[in-house]
C-alpha cells in the first residue's frame, strides 16, 4: 500500500524535471529490498499522474538485485531471501551493495521542434 505514496513521490520528481513538457516515458530503478509491488505501482501511477505532464507516460521499471557485500572477506553475493549474513564471516561486516534504490533514472519528454533544434547538443 505504500505504492500510492511512492507514486506521488515519482510524479513529483518527474514533473520537476519535465519543467512543463509532456512526459512520454519514465525509467525507474527499484531495488528488490524496497518491497515495491510493480503492478500496484503502475496502477497508482496512472491515477496520480492524471492531469499532470506525466499523464499517459509509459513506465519502465528496472529491477536492481539485492546484493550484499562483506567488508571482511570482500565477497559480494545476491540474496533471494532476507538473510543479511556472510556465509564465511557471519553478520558483522555485511552491508547492502545494491537493492535499496528507488530512483527516477531518466524521462523522455516532448520538446517543441524549434526548441530542440536550438538546444545545445
Amino acid at each position: 500500500m505504500h505504492e500510492f505514496d511512492l507514486s506521488n513521490a515519482i510524479v513529483q520528481t518527474v514533473n520537476k524535471h519535465a519543467a512543463g513538457r509532456r512526459v512520454t516515458h519514465i525509467t525507474l530503478r527499484v531495488g528488490r529490498l524496497r518491497q515495491v509491488v510493480k503492478d500496484t505501482l503502475l496502477f497508482y501511477l496512472a491515477i496520480v499522474g492524471k492531469d499532470t505532464p506525466c499523464e499517459g507516460a509509459t513506465l519502465e521499471i528496472v529491477d536492481v538485485p539485492a546484493v550484499l557485500r562483506c567488508n571482511t572477506c570482500e565477497n559480494e553475493w545476491e540474496i533471494e531471501i532476507p538473510a543479511f549474513i556472510c556465509g564465511t564471516c557471519g553478520p558483522g561486516a555485511v552491508e547492502v551493495a545494491t537493492g535499496e534504490e528507488f530512483m527516477v533514472e531518466s524521462i523522455e519528454v516532448e520538446d517543441e521542434e524549434d526548441a530542440a533544434c536550438t538546444a545545445p547538443r
Binding site: V14, H17, A18, F102, E105, D111
Partner: peptide, 17 residues
C-alpha cells in the same frame, strides 16, 4: 514534436528527505 531523453538520477523520495 521531438522527443528528448532527460537524465534524472534522483531518489524519488528526495522531496520528503
Amino acid at each position: 514534436m521531438h522527443r528528448t531523453k532527460v537524465r534524472v538520477v534522483e531518489d524519488a523520495l528526495d522531496a520528503n528527505n
